[in-house]
Design a protein around this nucleic acid. Structure first.
Lengths: 106, 106
DNA sequence: CGGTTAATTCGAGAATTTTCGAAATAGTAT
DNA sequence: ATACTATTTCGAAAATTCTCGAATTAACCG
């Protein structure tokens, strides 16, 4: 993964509203959540949510699928995995960092 | 770790200049790097670098130690580990995400 | 077609970020 | 004390982000 792309994704996650949003989608799992549900859950204007969703989608961290009139949003795990991989490889390569990552997985 | 704090740290890393900066420090390992070295390496104004360093230090991702007239900067691994832990626990809990994290560590 | 629900786009204001050069500070050595 | 090197703080301009309400598009149903 390129550094620029990783920075974009980190920036996308580096906002409380978007991180909360992403976490909500992760917790929803494969099921995903409709935009309307997310709006209620986060308590923000629809246009604001749409803006944040757009940023997450641009980075590939979230995907959308239409189901009739509602749009289902899902966390896109492979992209998050690549990001974690970048951080582990590029930013923890020569330190005691792989250790804790191992712990997290264990 | 609290979500707000994680967002702050992700935001700190979510800027190409700061991510490059952090990676440089990680690669330097325990030795660390003086601010002046980082300025040459990144090719930015001293005041700009100081600003970015400040943000990384505020989030705890980077530490500084004075050695005579020069300030040595170091990546603060435990903080990065906590952040990766948060992402793994809070944002990949119920998915196939731990899998890739395990791979990165292996 | 006309109506209804779901979500995005538009337009705009407030706040924050990013960047720089110039000036100030910290520390050391002469 | 003076001078020198290393780094931060100040002040400010340009760009971006965040937020909202109003208007618009998308998909369905009767």
């Amino acid at each position: 993964m390129k550094l620029e792309q990783a920075a974009k994704q980190l920036e996308a996650l580096g906002n409380p509203t978007r991180l909360k949003l992403y976490r909500t989608l992760v917790r929803a799992g494969e099921t995903g959540r409709p935009v309307g549900y997310l709006q209620d859950a986060l308590g923000i204007a629809a246009s604001t949510l749409s803006h944040h969703l757009h940023r997450l989608i641009l980075t590939g961290l979230v995907t959308q699928e239409r189901q009739a009139t509602t749009l289902i949003c899902r966390a896109n795990y492979p992209v998050m995995n690549d990001l974690l991989g970048f951080l582990a490889d590029e930013c923890c390569a020569d330190a005691a960092c792989g250790l804790a990552v191992g712990e997290a997985a264990a």
